[in-house]
Each structure stands twice: as structure tokens, then as C-alpha cells.
Nucleic acid binder design. Structure first.
Lengths: 124, 124
DNA sequence: CTCAAACGACTACGGATGTAATCTATAAAA
DNA sequence: TTTTATAGATTACATCCGTAGTCGTTTGAG
């Protein structure tokens, strides 16, 4: 089975853009990131792209002068891995205390509560 | 207001022991940790304790020959900080998709579902 | 009193991370 | 064709992390 490379905090920002756009050039990625947060330096993004390729999180194909990057790992896989790690580290792996924490701590709108109750009703 | 120092993966293991025991000596911490996982090296634990003191996560008082460590940050504060960071990084800060993920992905026992539904019913 | 055991402090060190400059090849412009 | 703007590759570097060895001091055993 596939091993998910460890995606760091900042790398997540980049991966999120690529997951959202499917596949894109470095320029497009830089544009998208600077739109969100203007403090991104283009060189920094390039360096991260290289690292993510080396990690096996991204693949690329040459398209003329530039590369077009695409994810090699699915978002859902990374979400799973990160969630698992978080759950284990902070809540000792126990799901219920974790969910209770979020339900109590963060403010849930009545809408969100309704929808969650619906989710809990239909375990697929 | 108090700034929560960043607690790393491994540091969490140590903090969890100290939060559970209230305050304890290095020896007690080492014992508790090796009980859970025998691969802890005493020197490693000592080094982490020093780092956690330097970070401001732990305080200590001399008790004869040895130190007695105690948390300077509350568990709940660290749980909040870690949860916030995780939620932001992986789910863009949106609570509902995050909860939906856990409810769908991880298997919830009927008991857990019942209790969660109860929690959702009484938002205190 | 002397010496070894134990304690915390300091040091070490490779790998990860965040951040970016420099190097090199190439392609477009002049 | 010579120059220059770009793209990616390589290098840099401070900090953090995981992991543990070494140093100097204290203290309990003999």
C-alpha cells in the first residue's frame, strides 16, 4: 500500500492549492497563494514545490518551458493521516472526547448542529 | 494574555504524564513513560524536560537532590491550540467538514453515537 | 573522608522546516 | 547570434526535533 509522506504545516497550504486546481504550473500556484496571503515569496514556493516532489507528494510533467505539477497523494489520504496523528497525539486516540471537545468548545450554529445530528443518524 | 508554547509530538507524551500526575520528579516521569513505551531512554526524557522548561511549558522547584516539575500551561489551553491549528491546516478552519470527516471516517460505536447525540442536544 | 551514583546542565548531531539566494540551462528577444 | 529573462536545481542557513552522550556538582554509601 502507498505510504503517505509527512506534509508539514506550510506544505499543506501548497498542497491545498494543487488539490483544488487539479494540476497547475508553478506560476499558477504562486498566484493562488499570494492571493490568499501576499507574504509568500515566489522563491519560497518554488523551493517547497521541489521538496514536495522529492517527498513524492507531487509529480510533474514538462510543458514547454515550465513544469505542470499534479498531486501524487489524494487529499483524503492526507486528511486521514493528519487526523489520525492529531487524534492520537492530543486525545490519546479516543474519538469521543475529541468530538466532545469540538462540540463544546467551538460554537456550533443551530444549522451545524442539525446537520451533525443528521449525520449521526445515518451511519452509512 | 498567556502565549502557549508550541508543544511537539513527542513533547505531548511527556506533558500528558505531567498533566495526569499534577507534579512529579524526573524519575516518576521516566517511570510512567517507560511503562507506556519501554523504548524511552532516560536521558532523552531529561533532555525533553529541560527543553520544556526553557519553552515555558514546565516549571520546577528543587526538592532536595532533584527537581519536581509542574505544568505552567493548562492541558485545555494546549488542546485548544493544537485543535485550532489542526482545524485550520487540514480543514481550512471549517468545523462542520471536520466533524463530518470523523463521524463518517472513523467507526463510531452505537454507544458513542448515542452520547454524541446527547451532547448535541444540550449545548450548555 | 573518599568515591561512586545520581542529578541537572551543556553539548552534539543528523534530519525536518521555513525562508530565500545563487547557479545553470534554456528560450525568447534584440 | 549575442543577450537576457526564466525555469528549475542546488545551496544556504537558522531553528526545531528526536535522541542521547558528556561534564560538573551533589550526596549517599563505605
Amino acid at each position: 500500500m502507498k505510504r503517505i509522506p509527512r506534509i508539514s504545516e506550510t506544505e499543506w497550504e501548497i498542497m491545498k492549492v494543487i488539490w483544488a486546481h487539479g494540476h497547475c504550473s508553478a506560476g499558477q500556484i504562486i498566484d493562488a497563494l499570494t492571493l490568499i496571503d501576499s507574504s509568500w515569496h515566489p522563491r519560497t514556493v518554488k523551493a517547497f514545490l521541489s521538496r514536495l516532489v522529492k517527498k513524492g507528494a507531487l509529480g510533474f510533467s514538462r510543458e514547454g518551458r515550465a513544469y505542470v505539477y499534479r498531486p501524487l497523494v489524494k487529499r483524503e489520504e492526507c486528511v486521514d493521516a493528519a487526523s489520525e496523528s492529531f487524534l492520537e497525539r492530543v486525545f490519546g486516540g479516543s474519538l469521543k472526547p475529541m468530538l466532545a471537545h469540538f462540540v463544546e468548545r467551538e460554537k456550533l450554529s443551530p444549522d451545524e448542529i442539525r446537520e451533525l445530528r443528521r449525520l449521526l443518524k445515518n451511519p452509512e
